[in-house]
Design a protein around this nucleic acid. Structure first.
Lengths: 356, 356
DNA sequence: ATAGCTAACGAAATCGTTTTCGTAAACATA
DNA sequence: TATGTTTACGAAAACGATTTCGTTAGCTAT
């Protein structure tokens, strides 16, 4: 009802007989103000209910305490966890987080980053859209000394902060695991190869086959557009209709892997006995599908947290240029039933025993 | 590298021999500037690469073109879809979205809304934390004429914008569906009863039982703290160990419902024949679990979109007070295998036929 | 012709902080 | 004593857009 007047540093200045400059400095812990004065001022600020006007500060500094995010879509498990991690770290440091979705379109990523730039963000965290192959739109940030952190889907060339997992090793381990389960013909559901994550996962797959003396067959490597459920279903159908179908699948994501499990079950193909399957991401669906999907877990929230911290550090240190620094996080191979042939064998023996 | 000077309305004014006032008005389509001039100015602005400084405008207006969100956690299917819808609508209107997570703690919701208030948001979209029972922290917004939209989890009392689904009817329909499937003893996984959504779902359940001549038994209504997987598992175990166990479950969310399915399967209890189960939300896991979970679908993204639009309208209309306006969206009952006894019966007959 | 009106624009204050130069006092040094 | 050096603070100009009052010119009605 009654519109309360917001109190400003001028009000504090008048009240305490200091100049606004001193108030400002005291509130920001500037060293040239004595500890005593700082305390006095902070106490008064607290008492009088002073609240900093971030817009004014932002205008003056040409920078707002805000971290911008550009991602494909929020409503995917990996992305929402990533954001969750970013938000938590940012808020603890008094930063806001503003998000924008590209929907995997280059055009949207372009306009979103422009809008974020106009919002005078302190830093940008990006997971590239599927379509992006030109990175000029990030130069405006880098040129201005605004840190850009690429996370997960990163550009190969650009010098900047990067937070990633070791996709190559993860792909290698996942494939090796299938080989150890006795698979001889392992198919791969590959994502768009210009995105580092999918390219590297595939490389890991290829090298694992080679190093274990298995042939790399083109007909077993399927390139997906979106790694969607529907795409996975169709691809699995094609693969299993081959004269010599695969006995294992390493999918670059869980959605497609789950669709393969479900398709296989519907066709009476036994998972993992006839077809061992492993996915990537450890989405919630992977532990719900039956048999539960083996997968590679991705520390999404942690990646978000680290990305945010890179920006906070950069801002604190007041670097004038973006520094090139790559952080590589560990993944974890999670073995569930969809690839665990030993366990499946044991179970089928047990279930046959009562009959004998 | 070269720090380009941002051009301002002053630069435009100098270039075109107008005053900054005119430039500002022209860019905002103020009526007192002639169409010709507006065009000239807009063209020049485009050409010279002018970009509005939202911070300066925000400072002057004491309001930034930003929508604040306060929710429990981002990384849940419903919430991420909600945000996705908000973000899309907001961005189309040139608004930014800043999010904050309460983690279902009242304390966090309090400090987050304070921070959002300090950010001079144009409007706030809230889905209440589980703990919240005091709504004073929203008064600062309402008193200032800043619109507050409550979505999904809304307060019963406060006069404000609300965007909800008809939880009562949904709960009633879900329960009625189980009754129609022949269930006689239907259990309910209920959420915290001070949150409208859970209270209303339960009411729908109770009334459906009553109106169909079934007794409402206290031992079959289980109150959950978080409706988590683990909680669901334990609760299902207890229920099924009763001397007279239930033959149906209506769960207030999918997570708990899925845990019930998985527990039942592990115990050899047939779903839906021995135990028909229906959930709420239509999370991705519900169509992946086997048998697939019947559930109530929640138009999450749409709710986000509408919430955002309420704020945009309010801002455009320049209302000085928050208006009380409730939007109720339709839900959809999605029948899958976990409650479809007719289909299950048919299947079991078919699978027996070959033998005869 | 004069008052009254409208259309189209301008001057300058304003929003609340920050920061660049200062200055003044107190103290140390040669 | 004269000269630096800190320490602790202040004046005032930014930051860029908006908006409250204007003003001026041209038109209409009487």
């Amino acid at each position: 009802m009654s519109i309360k007047k917001e109190i400003t540093i001028y009000d504090l200045a008048k009240e305490l007989n200091y100049s606004p400059s001193t108030i400002s400095r005291a509130l920001n812990d500037h060293k040239s103000i004595s500890k005593k004065t700082v305390q006095r001022i902070k106490n008064a600020a607290e008492e009088m209910g002073y609240r900093p006007n971030t817009l004014a500060a932002g205008l003056r500094n040409n920078k707002s305490k805000t971290i911008g995010i550009s991602i494909s879509r929020i409503n995917r498990p990996f992305m929402s966890s990533l954001i969750s991690g970013i938000e938590e770290a940012a808020r603890n440091a008094g930063y806001n987080v503003i998000i924008s979705q590209s929907d995997d379109k280059y055009k949207n990523e372009l306009s979103n980053t422009k809008a974020l730039y106009d919002s005078r963000i302190s830093g940008l965290i990006v997971s590239l859209s599927m379509e992006t192959s030109d990175y000029k739109h990030f130069n405006q940030f880098i040129d201005q000394g605004i840190p850009v952190v690429f996370v997960d889907r990163v550009p190969a060339s650009l010098n900047s902060y990067k937070v990633v997992i070791d996709n190559y090793s993860a792909g290698y381990s996942a494939t090796k695991h299938l080989i150890e389960q006795g698979c001889k013909r392992i198919a791969h559901f590959a994502g768009a190869q210009h995105r580092n994550v999918y390219e590297e996962r595939k490389k890991g797959y290829v090298d694992a086959l080679k190093e274990h003396g298995l042939p790399v067959e083109k007909e077993l490597i399927k390139y997906f557009k979106t790694l969607s459920f529907e795409e996975g279903r169709k691809t699995t159908a094609k693969l299993m209709a081959l004269p010599n179908p695969p006995d294992g699948i390493f999918s670059a994501n869980d959605t497609a892997a789950v669709s393969a499990i479900i398709y296989a079950k519907s066709m009476g193909i036994k998972v993992p006995e006839d077809l061992a399957i492993i996915g990537f991401n450890d989405d919630p669906i992977s532990s719900i599908v039956d048999p539960a999907l083996s997968t590679v877990s991705h520390p999404a929230a942690k990646m978000g947290e680290i990305s945010a911290k890179r920006i906070l550090e950069h801002s604190r240190a007041n670097y004038d240029k973006t520094i090139s620094e790559v952080t590589i996080l560990n993944t974890e191979l999670i073995i569930r039933d969809s690839s665990n042939r030993a366990k499946a064998l044991l179970k089928s023996k047990k279930s046959r025993q009562p009959k004998t």
